[in-house]
Nucleic acid binder design. Structure first.
Lengths: 171, 171
DNA sequence: GTAAAACTTCAAGTGAACTTGAGGTCAAGG
DNA sequence: CCTTGACCTCAAGTTCACTTGAAGTTTTAC
């Protein structure tokens, strides 16, 4: 839809699709959504600049870690329109995404490392575990310690205090 | 729809929904999908055992790191039907998921740590970077070095190494 | 005993991210 | 020039994970 930053817009939809391993329909969709830029030939066909490959690779990578197209679009918005983005332009995105990515990594590590421990004993506090901390749930439940996996408040209350390891699963 | 492992199925949909911070409709949906188990009252209402909380917490945590309900269902299938799952039952899931979770972590770390470096210079090889390695793309492109973000084969050919292979993979 | 709150099923709707298909046009090789 | 493959638009379909609404039933609390 909009003009690509570089004047050398020579790549077709199929070209860029092949290079990043996407379907042509996906490339058109991204163009429509404004995540990438194209110019049109006199006949109305899309042509992309080489930096589109870079954008698409970024889009794919970001998608693979769970970013939505809206989030990706927001990030790409920060890149300059008129010139090919520099290292610093991309680095700015890396910086702004860092906290979110760190949190995701923490969640994954928690699920990976603590799954057996936490679920097995049902004793992990919400505040101490990155695994179970959906933003909205944390907001609505905000009082006192909740428990990650297994016994919930009433169960814990019923059995013992702080370090309670009520463990019915150890049969 | 099937019977819960514990005979003390006393929790209603609303109870479990509140405790894990889910909507009642989601709980019913999971029940319908077979991810959790319930018994019915004479009046036809669902009742859940306490271990359902544990399952739901697991489902939520797994979903947050991008697992689909099908994948989660598969994992939960490995848990015993007749008794409350033990530490070891859950640990088995942790073990089988480990490689996938490790890969996801690697991707995230790559996006976090290498975004500026990789994209800025456009010089990272596919084989050396965890960021850009979607399974299917890797499978279809399987030959030679492809490049992560930025300059693609032809660009690289023009500038440096001659190990590039133009892949004739598409129609 | 009754009223309200929570439950029930079932069908349809939502939004994200595309894909598919129809019907037609463009561009490059021979 | 002409064929062939890739491109175009637009509308509709798909999958996932639910949510919403309607119409009715059950439980609980007083």
């Amino acid at each position: 839809m909009s003009t690509p930053s570089a004047p050398d817009a020579t790549l077709t939809v199929g070209d860029v699709a092949d290079r990043v391993g996407l379907a042509p329909s996906a490339v058109r969709y991204y163009d429509e959504r404004g995540l990438i830029r194209s110019v049109r030939t006199t006949g109305g066909q899309r042509r992309f600049g080489r930096d589109t490959i870079r954008r698409l690779a970024f889009i794919s990578a970001a998608q693979q870690v769970g970013k939505t197209l809206d989030q990706i679009a927001d990030a790409l918005e920060t890149l300059p329109d008129e010139r090919t983005p520099t290292h610093d332009d991309w680095a700015a995105i890396a910086t702004s995404w860092r906290p979110g990515l760190d949190e995701q990594i923490a969640r994954l590590e928690a699920l990976r490392d603590k799954l057996d421990g936490c679920i097995g004993c049902g004793c992990l506090s919400l505040e101490r575990c990155a695994l179970w901390n959906p933003d909205d749930a944390a907001a609505t439940l905000g009082d006192g310690a909740r428990w990650l996996l297994g016994e919930s408040l009433s169960d814990v209350d019923a059995t013992a205090t702080a370090t309670a390891v009520h463990d019915p699963s150890r049969s």
